[in-house]
Design a protein around this nucleic acid. Structure first.
Lengths: 204, 204
DNA sequence: TTATGGTTTAACCATTTGGTTAACAAAAGT
DNA sequence: ACTTTTGTTAACCAAATGGTTAAACCATAA
């Protein structure tokens, strides 16, 4: 950062515009010209600041990923009980994604396109691990707080229930015959419906 | 079909090749030349049989969708109890997708790219509706078989738990630090783990 | 004031890409 | 046999696209 000349924050404007375009259209569907238009600047600036489409994309991607990672940390590395974690995570995550609706699909899509991205990310960002969560589930099962369940499966279940509707939004809208407003209401309900559903299943 | 000339089934070969390429790379990432190579024929043939990339893509898409729709019918329009439906669907769906791993991501991704596709599909394919399932849930709740739960939310939960891991495969592999083999094992476990998880939550 | 160096732009370039064409080959029809 | 129709190919084309360049711009330090 700390640019010297007339520019105030062109680099940031570019990143913002790139975020919008890449998240909507993906790496392959995005056009450098469209990003430039969205940022209101000359296309050459994109290359001046980010060298190539690939590098600009990676900047956007790790930026997006580092937004999402802390969300997962709340369920993986927090000291409350599993029940509280589930309640908090579900509530927080759905609120969070409602503000960033393109994020989960963007990340998952581009991770599918190039699974090696994951390794790149693991090195750069502080990356949450599953160990603590698994141990905690085992412990709470042994204590008789939870019914017997595998920690890994429970983790997958929790993120499936929370993330999937935001990835499959058009599918859900289609099946349920609802519009944007109806979808938002449904997700609002899910803040409690999902955590109840999970707790019902695992609590003894 | 029933082509008259020397060709045996070029049209089918093209569709197969297109399926592979489109499902791996998406509409934007796919190249007509790559499809032609995969099919082992001249690129002009793609246009001879399907006119344009868009039309070829739509052929692949509705083909894929009509594979997936009957799977959903098993949970939406079947006469068994909700409990049996959940058990059967979970088991069948995971088996089915293990054989077609790219399918769910392909459909969801392209539906996100162009939500209007959904309307097109609804006209062409026999399209499962949610009404029966919702009524059945309401009925079983009233009878005291199930704990109170909204039918729409339950439906979303069921498909989330079943579909999500196959869409977010690289993410899950990364978090759980497992390879292909480990992932398959985990999905095999899910055939029972998921239905138990759901039944535990909803059965009175 | 003027030299300096980062910033910005319009024009340009090479390559890729979806799509077309014209000629040719193989059947099918007569 | 030969004509017509259908299938197949190589060569070609125009548009789009990521990227480059050289000149202009402009804030600031000397």
């Amino acid at each position: 950062m700390a640019k010297t000349n007339k520019n105030i924050d062109t680099e940031g404007q570019i990143l913002d515009a790139a975020k919008n375009v890449f998240q909507k259209k993906g790496m392959d569907g995005a056009r450098m010209q469209e990003i430039a238009n969205e940022a209101g600047i000359n296309k050459a600036m994109l290359h001046y600041y980010y060298r190539s489409k690939q590098l600009l994309f990676e900047a956007v991607f790790s930026n997006a990923f580092s937004l999402l990672a802390p969300q997962l940390n709340k369920i993986l590395n927090d000291d409350s009980s599993i029940e509280d974690k589930v309640k908090n995570f579900t509530h927080n995550y759905i609120s969070f994604i409602t503000k960033h609706p393109y994020l989960p699909n963007f990340i998952i899509q581009e991770l599918n396109r190039n699974p090696k991205f994951f390794e790149k990310i693991q090195q750069n960002t502080a990356f949450p691990t599953l160990e603590k969560f698994k141990n905690q589930v085992t412990a709470e099962v042994e204590k008789g707080i939870l019914k017997p369940i595998d920690g890994e499966q429970l983790f997958i279940n929790i993120i499936s229930l929370n993330i999937f509707p935001f990835i499959a939004t058009p599918l859900i809208k289609g099946f349920l015959k609802i519009d944007d407003k109806g979808f938002k209401q449904l997700m609002e309900q899910r803040k409690t419906a999902v955590s109840e559903f999970i707790i019902n299943s695992i609590k003894k």
